[in-house]
Every structure is written in C-alpha cells, then in structure tokens.
Simulated assay, not measured.
Amino acid sequence: MGDHHGHDDDGVHDHDRGLQFDMSTLMSRRRALQLLAVGGLSVGGLAAIVGCGSSSPAAGTTAAATTATTAATTATDVAAVPEETAGPFPADGSNGVNVLTESGIVRRDITTSFGAASGVAEGVPLTIEMTILDIARGGAAAPGAAVYAWHCDREGRYSLYDGEIASENYLRGVQEADGSGRVTFRSIFPAAYSGRWPHIHFEVYPRLDEATAAGAKLVTSQIALPDDACAAVYATAGYEQSATNLSRTSLATDMVFSDGYSTQLGTVTGSVSEGMTVRLNVGV
C-alpha cells in the first residue's frame, strides 16, 4: 500500500511533499481562524467564533428569562471545527484536477466512480453523516449548506491522483444539507496510510451552487476516526497494511490532530459485518 499512495504519474512522492508543503498552510489557516474568532469577524458570511462551553439557566429561572438567555447566546454551545489542510489530493481545483464542476459529483453513494469511469471502491461499508451547524445563530442547523467529502481507498490511494486509479473518481462527492443541516454519504472505511491517522477530508460551502462551482468555502477540515473502530476494521482482510500503519502513529502525534481534535473526532456505531456509521457535528 505504501508503494501506491502518494505517487503521481511523474513518480514524485506527492504525499511527503504535500504534507511538508501543507504544514505552513495549516498553521496559517488555524491562526487566521483563531484571529477571526477573537475579532468576531465572519467566514463566508457565518461568524467563526470558537465556542468553549454552554450557558445553563440557574434553578428557578423563569421560562421567559431562559428564552431570552438562549436567544442571546451565540456560538457558545457549538465550537467551530478547525481549519485544516486539504492535503495534496483535494481535486477541488486548488491542486490540479477539479472534480467539483463535473456532472455527477452531487451524489450520496461515493463508493463508485461516475461519468466515464466505472471503478468501485472495496472495503468495510461506512456511512458518513455530518450535521452542519451555524455558530452565528447559536448552533442552529444550517440547511442548504453543502459538503464536499473525500478520502483514500482501502489501499491508501486517492482517486484522480494515484497512477493506478488516476482515471477513477470514487470516494468523492457533494451533498446538500437537509432541513436538519445533515448530509449523508455512503462510502467505505478508509485506510491508515504511512504518516497519518485515519481521516476523512471535507469542505463546507454556503450553498450547493457554490460547491459545484468550486467557489468560496466556509471551512476545510478533517474527521478523525476513533481508535477502536479502526482496530476492528483493520483486523479484516484487505486492511493488513493499515493495521501496521495504525500501530506507528496516534492522534496525539498526528501532524493534523496533535494540537487538539475534540471537535473532529467522529462517533462510530455499527459493526464490521453490518457496516459502520461515523457522525460528526460541524460548527461553521
């Protein structure tokens, strides 16, 4: 698997180059997000104010006072998901190919390729469920927002970039949030490749048409997959190399998650035999 991941058609080790290159971008993005949070500025029209707790009415507070407190509370019940690197393989037009403007990218099932491609990603079934929450409105659901999600396959390769699957576009898709702010993708559990904790990339856009035009993003971030779920999946056939790679890293040492992952660690339910679901609330 390590021989597959991170090599483009020219044989350059993009993964290593990308991680090093993205470190400066990652840190500057996080610093910018923190400054915006402190200053009360907005990101794509939504205030990126990082919450750090919730307000609970004291005993005996009247219903009217409780309502007033709730209405006055903004961004204290939901924390903003941190800005992260998109990595070297986003396919959003920022690093080569742009899959977002292609017909067929808006879909729920991302296990298969679309358009002229016909590949299918094999692996343990995984449903990815994200709920987009508007921090400027006290953590209310953000219906109509759009999410572009992508991740590597069972072998640790990214479609549209790795030489062996450069003609495929599976494990990439866009969904519009429903009335509850929820988006759902049907996928497979990604591999753990060398140097990174298992993760899922995503970008949040204010509207679907903004996403499919590769327009202005609200945030780029990543979902961290919990250790117990990874261990269970990587004990199955096809994920042998992932088990080895997982043993060599941790959330505490991962270059993306080591500075804190409380708002990025997904909750996983289900089983290997029946499929799993990872859920994450995403404050933007």
Rank of each mutant, 00 (worst) to 15 (best):
S94M: 13
A121Y: 01
A116Q: 13
F89W: 15
G138I: 03
T112E: 15
T131Y: 05
D134A: 12
I132R: 06
E122R: 14
S94A: 14
S103D: 15
G119I: 06
T85M: 15
I105V: 15
A121K: 03
D109L: 04
T127Q: 14
G87E: 08
N95I: 13
G93D: 04
G87I: 03
T127A: 14
V97G: 00
N95H: 13
P88M: 11
T127R: 14
P125K: 04
L133A: 12
T85W: 12
V120W: 02
P88H: 14
G123C: 02
A121I: 03
D134G: 08
L126Q: 03
D92N: 07
I135D: 03
A117Y: 06
D109I: 04
A86Q: 13
S94G: 09
F114N: 07
S94E: 07
S113W: 10
I105Y: 05
S94Y: 03
G119Q: 09
V97P: 00
E122G: 04
P88A: 14
M130V: 00
D92R: 09
V106E: 12
A91E: 15
P125D: 07
L100K: 00
A116E: 14
T131V: 07
I105D: 09
L133T: 06
A121T: 02
V124E: 00
A91Y: 11
V124P: 00
